[in-house]
């Protein structure tokens, strides 16, 4: 079951931001929506969250249409690119926010906050002010805040893009482990294919409001559906215009050199 989008269209005035998108995310699956900036992927994510209204088509969760369910009743978690922590609350206050909205009692809140701060690797940070945190720590807190009320679906909007390179790679590896450990169903939006490959079980490539290819990271890397996707992966020079037969499956693909995949993809060993 999980999330299902059917012929979803989202318009901004005259502009069609999302066009006839069909997409499914199974329970426990992490799907990355990958594409250049302006391709409509963030709009798609906002429509799933309930922050944008669909022009036509449906967003369903476990078969139920969400059109009339407002944002705050969808039970989805959202992590922004730059955290967007509440500056007037300390770390614990931020993480507990969703629990408070659901009326959890104080003790349950405190336990869950401690548990989440452990999970994201910031034990004992509860009483710190959010302004004292580094960028990477802020993102971890934002993640803990989104995970605390046990969301049915986690929405990640470029969660690592605001960080510098070294930190990004570190946090990407951590996040991959963390998402599996939490058993989260997640929709990740990113323009960075390294990030997508490191985190996702499945990748949907998006261009000009449409989804142009879906598949596992290996499939989309080895068999980009067209030259534009190959170019998006930075493989313009070696891509021949002539399609060739794929040695694995026999379908027509574009010839590509050896991929440089992220280690966590090639060796998906998750510490339990």
């Amino acid at each position: 079951m999980g999330l299902r989008l059917s012929t979803l269209n989202v318009h901004y005035g005259q502009t069609v931001a999302v066009s006839d998108v069909d997409l499914e995310i199974a329970d426990g699956e992490v799907l990355a929506l990958l594409g250049p900036s302006g391709c409509g992927k963030s709009t798609l994510l906002r429509a799933v969250a309930g922050l944008e209204r669909a022009h036509s088509g449906t967003v369903q969760w476990d078969g139920a249409d969400l059109a009339d369910v407002p944002v705050h009743q969808r039970g989805f978690g959202l992590v922004f690119q730059d955290g967007q922590l509440f500056p007037h609350r300390d770390v614990a206050g931020n993480v507990a926010f969703g629990l408070r909205m659901r009326g959890a009692d104080k003790k349950a809140q405190a336990e869950r906050v401690a548990e989440l701060l452990d999970l994201v690797g910031l034990p004992g940070y509860g009483s710190r002010r959010t302004t004292e945190l580094s960028g990477g720590e802020q993102q971890r807190v934002a993640l803990a805040r989104a995970l605390a009320p046990r969301p049915k679906l986690l929405l990640l909007d470029e969660p690592l893009s605001a960080l510098d390179r070294a930190l990004r790679e570190q946090l990407a590896a951590d996040l991959a482990v963390l998402l599996r450990r939490a058993g989260a169903t997640a929709l990740l939006v990113t323009h960075d294919h390294d990030e997508a490959f490191a985190l996702a079980d499945r990748i949907a490539l998006m261009r000009k409001g449409k989804i142009v290819q879906t598949g596992t990271p290996e499939e989309v890397w080895h068999h980009p559906a067209d030259p534009d996707i190959a170019a998006f992966f930075g493989r313009t020079k070696t891509t021949s215009a002539e399609p060739v037969r794929c040695p694995h499956c026999g379908s027509e693909v574009f010839k590509s050199p050896e991929p440089r995949l992220h280690p966590s993809l090639t060796t998906p060993n998750l510490p339990e």
Binding site: A49, G50, L51, P70, V71, H72, Q73, R74, G75, F76, G77, L78, F80, Q84, F86, F97, G98, M101, R102, R145, A146, P149, L155
Partner: peptide, 23 residues
């Protein structure tokens, strides 16, 4: 106030009135 702060509160379960009070 960054509107995404309000949106973050909303996705965490705060109704529009609650968002106003909390953010």
């Amino acid at each position: 106030i960054d509107d995404r702060l309000r949106q973050a509160a909303a996705t965490l379960g705060a109704s529009p009135l609650r968002v106003w009070r909390e953010v």
